[in-house]
Amino acid sequence: MSIMIPTRDAAAVPSATPHPRPRPRRLRRRFEPIAGPLRVVLLLVYAIPILFIVLTSLKDPSDVISSQSSFLFTPTLEAYTAVLANQGLFIAMQQSLTIATGTTALTLLVAIPAGYGLARVDSRITTIGLGLLIVLQMVPQTANVIPLYQIFGAWGLLDQNLGVIVADTALLVPFATLLLRPFFRSVPEALEEAASIDGASTMRTFWSVMLPIARNGVATTGTLVFLMSWGEFLYAVNFFLSPGNYPLSALLAQQVSAFGINWPGLMALAVITSVPILILFVFTYRLLREGLTLGAVK
């Protein structure tokens, strides 16, 4: 039997094309009087703000207000040198990396089995579970700060990476579970049943049958969780008591003070902060593209 890997190619399989695959190309080279211009509009709508970010990061603070809609200014790399000269930057980047990696790992550790469990059992409990997950998605993050602070204070997790990782995980597990569940549902039940008849334990079936097939979903969810925990700011600022522990997102907040916003600094830091994210995106481009549909199905 064929194992259906949820990819575009796999999706093409059931249509039973007789000819062997020179993979049918998605030819759409006809003249598009509407789509073409619309695509340019879309490009502008997203490129202009990014251009603005980059331009602002190259300005002198005194030029930010006076040259808002013109391109006439003397570019300077001052904001970048200032940001890069900040010794805290690399510690912050390390912290962001630790927190995002830890959160991703812990979230997956908890959410994968949950997504699997909720995918395989059809009962009232599943319905309630799904509903509760959405409600948890909805709770304002600010409302979690005070209770979690009390827990972490009692458990000695304040000012620890672990505390922030746990808080971020609690924030992202509902999202990750909701997203993972359909991936497991899409694995044919017969496969699992067969393994169980062969005598494989539930754990083994899960580990060696289910997980490998759902790996696309796991990778996609992991990527999204990583992106989200990379940018998380509120918990980081509240649960770290030493500024030396702040991740990048809190460093960004530092550019905005009661006494003014350092526009070029903010934009330069935003650009620098996004570089790791862009690298991650390039690597996971295909996964994101193909994986997301599945997760989103239901």
Binding site: A105, L108, L109, I165, P212, R215, G222, S242, N245
Partner: peptide
């Protein structure tokens, strides 16, 4: 996949045990 799983586990261990740079505040 196991490889990837192993990588996740290792990084998780690193992250969780990884020391927090400064610990007063």
């Amino acid at each position: 996949f196991s490889l990837a799983g192993g990588a996740i586990a290792v990084s998780a261990a690193l992250a969780l045990t990884g020391c927090t740079p400064t610990s007063s505040g």
